[in-house]
Design a protein around this nucleic acid. Structure first.
Length: 587
RNA sequence: GCCAGCGUAGCUCAGGGGUAGAGCAACUGAUUCGUAAUCAGUAGGUCGACAGUUCAAUUCUGUCCGCUGGCUCCA
C-alpha cells in the first residue's frame, strides 16, 4: 500500500497514550502517584498508587480528559538530565516510585524525561511529537497490581487501555474482543451443555455433562490408542494415599501449600493426590527391574487435586481437580535424549491432530532451590536442549524457572483472548528415584539408578478441553462432535423415513439425533445451527420419494442431495481422517 | 489470597425501602409447515447466605459464599 508519510510505530502510539492517561489521571486526581506504564500486546497499562482505588466510572472521566488533552495539541518534548537533578525533580514532584525506577537505571545510561504541557514523566521514549496524534484509544479495565509484582509490596491501581492508528482499527479491535467473548469456553460450555461447576460441589471442581463427556471419551480413546502404539503401558492409581508416601517423595516439604488438607482414617493421615508420580514409582518398585526392561513407560489418565487460591480459578483452564494425561518414563542415562525426542514427537502429533499449530515452547533451567548435582542438571538440560533442536522446535529459555527436581520443557497454547496456557510438559526428575531408592540391574550386574521423566501431552483434560472449545468456537470437527448428524423431518409424515435413516446411521456407528418436534423446519435448523451440529439432514416428501437425503453442512446454507450410503461413506472418511474441516475459524 | 465489579425464574437481563418483571426455554393446546425463531394459554422466584438499620429490606449497611477482570501463583 502506498503511504506518503511513514506510519508511526504502534508501540510508540501506545506508549504515548499511556503517558496521556497518566497526565489525565494526575490532572483529575492530583494525590495519585505515578509508577510505570508499559506497552503490552494490543495496548498498554499504567500503574498508579492511590489511597482510594479507581472505579469503572473514573475510567470514563479519565478517557474524557485524555481526549481534551489530545485536542490541546501539546508538543511532547524530550530532555536528558543528570541523575541527581532527575532525582531531585521527582522528589519535588512527590513521585517516590520514579525515584526507585531511576536508581535502577544503569549509571552510564542517560536519564531522559518527556514533557507535555504541565506533565513530565521519566521515560526512555520514544514518543509521538504531539498529543494530537493520539486519538484512537479506549480504556478497558482497572485492576490491582503489586509494585514490582511482589505481593509484599504496595498495591497499585492498574488501568488497561488500547490504542491504534485510526478509529477504524480501534473499532475492529473492540469487535474482535467481542467475538472472542462469544467463544469463551465457559459461555459455550453452558450453551452447548458440555460441563458445569456448581456452588454445592465447590469451586474448581468440574462436572462433565453427557456431551462434554462424549468428547472426553473420544479424546481419551485417541490418547490411549496412540500410547499403546508408542510403547506405553497403562496403569491406574488411587485418588488418595497415606501422607507418609508424600513425605518420602518430598511433596509434604516442597508442595504442601497445594495439597488438600489431610484426612484422618483410623488414626492414619491421608491426602488427595496432587500428582501421580509416586504411585508409578510404587509400581516400578513392585519387582526387580533389569536394564532389559528399560525404558519403561507407565501412562495414566490420573485425576489429581490441588489447592489453588480462589482468585486464580478460571473455568476449565485453572481448576482444583483435574485429570492429567500423565506418564512416567524410567530409562538408562544414555536413553534420555531419544526418549525426550519421542515424547516431543508424540506431543506435536497430538497437538496437530487437534488443530493446534500455534504454540510456544519453553526450556526451564535450574532454579535457586534444587536437588541433585549441578553436573546432573547440566547433563539433563543439555539432553532437553538437544532433543528440542533435533525436533527443530523454536524455543525460549526460562532461566531458573525449572521445578526443584529437574529441568523441563513446557509447551503452551492460547485461548480465544490470546492468553497462553501450559499444556504439554517434559520434565527430568533427579529427586524421586533417589528418595524412593529405585534401581535396576545393569549389564554388569551392578545396581544403577534409572533416570525418570515426567511428561504430559494435553496436560490436563480439563484445560485442554477448555482450549479446544475456544479453538473450535464450539464447532467441533466431525470426529469429536458429541452429535454428528441431526435428522430434521419436515412434517410427521416423514417420521417413518426418519427412523429408517436414523437406524442406518446409528448402526454405522454415528452419533445421530432426530428432531421430531412439531416445529417448522426453519426453527429446527436454527437450533441445530446454534448447537453447531456438523451435519443437518432434512427429510421431506421429496427425499422420502427418492430415498435420498438433503444434507446441509454447518456454516453453509446449501444443501446437497445424497443417498444414504454415499453419505455414510463421506462421514466415515471424514471421521477416520480426523478431518478438521471448517472447525477452526479465525476470530 | 489481593484490588475492583457483579449475584433477581432453567438461560439472558430489567427493576427498585411498601407482597417481584420481560424475552427465550419448560408444560398444555392448536397448527403438519421445505432451509436460522408458528400462535395461544399455563406454571415457574426465601431477589446468593446470614446479621444489622427500619413500622417495613430483594432494595440501605456489614460479614460470609460464589462468579468476572487483573495481580501473585500454576497443568
Amino acid at each position: 500500500m502506498a503511504d506518503d508519510k511513514p506510519k508511526i510505530d504502534l508501540e510508540t502510539i501506545r506508549h504515548s497514550t499511556a503517558h496521556l492517561m497518566a497526565q489525565a489521571v494526575k490532572q483529575l486526581y492530583p494525590d495519585t502517584q505515578v509508577t510505570i506504564g508499559p506497552v503490552i500486546e494490543d495496548g498498554f497499562y499504567y500503574d498508579f498508587y492511590r489511597e482510594s482505588p479507581f472505579v469503572p466510572e473514573d475510567l470514563e472521566k479519565i478517557e474524557q480528559r485524555m481526549k481534551e488533552i489530545s485536542s490541546e495539541n501539546l508538543d511532547i518534548t524530550r530532555r536528558e538530565l543528570p541523575r541527581e537533578e532527575a532525582l531531585r525533580m521527582f522528589d519535588e514532584m512527590g513521585e517516590p516510585f520514579k525515584r526507585e525506577v531511576i536508581s535502577d537505571i544503569e549509571s552510564d545510561e542517560p536519564i531522559s524525561v518527556y514533557s507535555q504541557g504541565e506533565f513530565t514523566d521519566l521515560c526512555r521514549g520514544p514518543h509521538v511529537e504531539n498529543t494530537k496524534t493520539l486519538k484512537s484509544f479506549k480504556l478497558l479495565n482497572v485492576s490491582a497490581a503489586y509494585w514490582r509484582g511482589d505481593e509484599r509490596n504496595k498495591v497499585l491501581q492498574r488501568i488497561y487501555g488500547t490504542a491504534w492508528h485510526t478509529d477504524k482499527e480501534l473499532r475492529v479491535y473492540l469487535k474482535r474482543l467481542e467475538e472472542a467473548k462469544k467463544r469463551d469456553h465457559r459461555k459455550l460450555g453452558k450453551e452447548l451443555d458440555l460441563f458445569s461447576v456448581t456452588d454445592e460441589v465447590g469451586p474448581g471442581l468440574i462436572l462433565w455433562h453427557p456431551k462434554g463427556s462424549r468428547i472426553r471419551c473420544l479424546m481419551e480413546d485417541f490418547w490411549k490408542e496412540e500410547h499403546f502404539k508408542n510403547g506405553y503401558e497403562m496403569v491406574h492409581s488411587p485418588h488418595a494415599a497415606r501422607v507418609d508416601m508424600w513425605k518420602t517423595s518430598g511433596h509434604m516439604d516442597f508442595y504442601k501449600d497445594n495439597i488438600f488438607s489431610p484426612m484422618d482414617i483410623e488414626g492414619k493421615e491421608y491426602v488427595m493426590k496432587p500428582m501421580n508420580c509416586p504411585f508409578h514409582i510404587q509400581i516400578y518398585k513392585s519387582r526387580l527391574r533389569s536394564y532389559r526392561d528399560l525404558p519403561l513407560r507407565f501412562a495414566e489418565l490420573g485425576t489429581v487435586y490441588r489447592y489453588e487460591r480462589s482468585g486464580v480459578l478460571h473455568g476449565l483452564l485453572r481448576v482444583r481437580g483435574f485429570t492429567q494425561d500423565d506418564a512416567h518414563l524410567f530409562c538408562r542415562p544414555n536413553q534420555i535424549e531419544e526418549e525426550i525426542v519421542k515424547v516431543l514427537d508424540l506431543i506435536l502429533f497430538i497437538l496437530r491432530s487437534f488443530g493446534f499449530d500455534e504454540y510456544r515452547v519453553y526450556l526451564s533451567t535450574r532454579p535457586e532451590k534444587f536437588v541433585g548435582s549441578e553436573d546432573g542438571w547440566e547433563q539433563a538440560t543439555n539432553a532437553l536442549k538437544q532433543a528440542l533442536e533435533k525436533s527443530k522446535l523454536k524455543y525460549e529459555v526460562d532461566l531458573g524457572e525449572g521445578v526443584f527436581y529437574g529441568p523441563k520443557i513446557d509447551i503452551k497454547i492460547k485461548d480465544s483472548l490470546n492468553r497462553f496456557w501450559q499444556v504439554s510438559t517434559v520434565q527430568v526428575d533427579f529427586n524421586l528415584p533417589e528418595r524412593f531408592d529405585i534401581n535396576y540391574i545393569e549389564e554388569n550386574g551392578q545396581r544403577n539408578q534409572p533416570i525418570m521423566l515426567h511428561r504430559a501431552l494435553m496436560g490436563s483434560l480439563e484445560r485442554f478441553f477448555g482450549c479446544l472449545i475456544e479453538h473450535y468456537a464450539g464447532a467441533f470437527p466431525l470426529w469429536l462432535a458429541p452429535v454428528q448428524v441431526i435428522l430434521l423431518p419436515i412434517t410427521d409424515q416423514n417420521q417413518r423415513y426418519t427412523d429408517e435413516v436414523f437406524k442406518k446411521l446409528m448402526n454405522s456407528g454415528f452419533r445421530v439425533e432426530k428432531d421430531l418436534r412439531n416445529e417448522k423446519i426453519g426453527f429446527k435448523i436454527r437450533e441445530a445451527q446454534l448447537q453447531k451440529i456438523p451435519y443437518m439432514v432434512i427429510l421431506g416428501e421429496k427425499e422420502q420419494e427418492n430415498n435420498s437425503l438433503a444434507v446441509r453442512k454447518r456454516r453453509s446454507k446449501e444443501t446437497v442431495a445424497l443417498d444414504i450410503d454415499s453419505f455414510i461413506d463421506k462421514l466415515s472418511l471424514e471421521v477416520s481422517k480426523k478431518d478438521l474441516g471448517e472447525a477452526i475459524q479465525p476470530i
